[in-house]
Amino acid sequence: MLIPHARRPTSNVAITIASVALTATGFLLYHTWSDTDSWSLAKPLPVLTTSDGIPKKIWYKLGPKGLTNATRAWTNTCIDGNPGYAHEFMTDESGDAYVAARFASRPDIVASYLGLTIPILKADLLRYLLLVADGGVWSDLDVSCAGVPMDAWVPAAHRADAGLVVGWEFDVGWGENIIRQFTSWLIMARPNSPHLWAVVEDIVQGIQDKTAEHNVTVAGLQLAMVGEVVDFTGPRRLTRGVLKSLARSLNVTAIDQANITHLVEPKLLGDVLILPGFAFAASANTYDEKLRAGLGPPLVKHHYAGTWKNKNGGEVAG
């Protein structure tokens, strides 16, 4: 079951905090949304929500070695700074159980997720699946909160409408040739965001395309086969999927990025709230003195631990 206030791990040993109880008989509770929906999810337990409907829960994913002193300190800033929020540290085992149970009606998603052997690809896909199924706040382990309570991250004027909250990673100070992307280290969402569903569908299709191209199983995929992780499952994939879905929901051919870039304050487009670069990625954006005077405070700091940047695509046990 979901644990309302899951205890943070107290050692570097990854502690399995099962999000879904899988009994020996495989008994599951399912919630089917409507006769017209093509999918169903295992029924979640209630989680406190903010006034904007975004659940008050912070999701993390541990590698095989658990928390380091640094990641424990960083995550503590968000956990302790938001006492009204539940938090959960997913592990490889609990992540597998969660996806198998919550997406049982989508065997293509389950097979794709469980088949992946590259840690960063699974971690990327898991964050989108968690937010699709239960919503809340996804945070990478190397993100610390900067002192502004999460309840204040969404301006009051947008709380009724914002179903997905993202922030620019590269926006101001990079010129016009940069490939702009949303951060994937911090995402906020209501459950069942159609835009995150689009990201999931694109990733699953990408996995199917690559396995066919290289004539391998999902487990046989290697980093060299999928190309750039940022494009395959990471922030560029997130950005493309969200903007594509948002354009579809607004009945336009494409989103004009001129309307959502160079931001100095949050911008709501449809049900997607886009935060300026300083919100989630202050160190990655450069503002001139005039602009800096009118900016709000950073919300988080990303410490760029980069534990996935190796030949394994992530941390391994041992």
Rank of each mutant, 00 (worst) to 15 (best):
K210Y: 04
T117P: 05
D134A: 14
Y128T: 05
K122G: 11
R180V: 00
E176F: 05
P155A: 07
E201K: 14
G173I: 02
G147S: 10
F182K: 00
W138G: 14
L129R: 14
A219P: 13
V154G: 08
D134C: 12
F182V: 00
K122W: 03
A160P: 10
L125C: 09
V199W: 00
K210V: 00
V199A: 01
E169F: 12
A157G: 07
V200N: 07
D142A: 11
R190N: 05
D209W: 06
A219F: 07
V216W: 04
C145S: 10
C145D: 05
T211I: 04
W185Q: 06
K122H: 05
L221R: 11
L114Q: 04
A162E: 10
P194L: 11
V226R: 12
V166E: 06
M188R: 15
Q181N: 09
A133V: 03
D142Y: 13
A219S: 15
R180D: 00
C145G: 10
P191Q: 08
I120T: 05
L164G: 06
A224Q: 15
I178F: 01
Q208P: 03
D142P: 15
V148W: 12
V148D: 12
D161I: 06
D140V: 10
M188Y: 07
D140W: 15
I178W: 03
G173H: 09
P194S: 13
V199L: 01
L141C: 11
I179L: 07
G175L: 04
D134R: 15
K122C: 07
G220H: 13
V148H: 10
W185P: 00
V154Y: 11
P155Y: 09
V218Y: 07
A157E: 14
Y128R: 12
I207A: 07
W185V: 01
A212N: 13
S184Q: 04
L126H: 00
G175A: 05
A162V: 07
R159M: 02
M225F: 13
R127P: 04
A156L: 10
F182C: 01
D161E: 14
P155N: 11
S193K: 05
W185E: 08
A162I: 08
V154P: 02
R190E: 01
R159P: 00
Q205G: 11
A133K: 13
V172I: 09
S184W: 03
N192M: 05
I207E: 09
L196G: 01
D151T: 14
A198W: 03
A157H: 13
V154M: 08
D124A: 12
R159A: 01
P191T: 03
D124T: 06
R180P: 05
Q208E: 07
G175F: 04
R159K: 15
Y128S: 11
P119D: 09
S193R: 03
T211V: 08
I203V: 04
I120C: 08
A157Y: 06
W168Q: 10
Y128C: 09
A224L: 10
I179T: 02
I178T: 02
Q205N: 09
D124P: 03
N215E: 08
H195G: 02
W168E: 09
V199T: 00
Q208R: 12
S193H: 04
Y113C: 01
W138N: 15
E213H: 15
A198N: 14
I178D: 01
I120F: 04
I118H: 03
I187Q: 05
V199Y: 00
A157D: 11
D142M: 11
D124V: 08
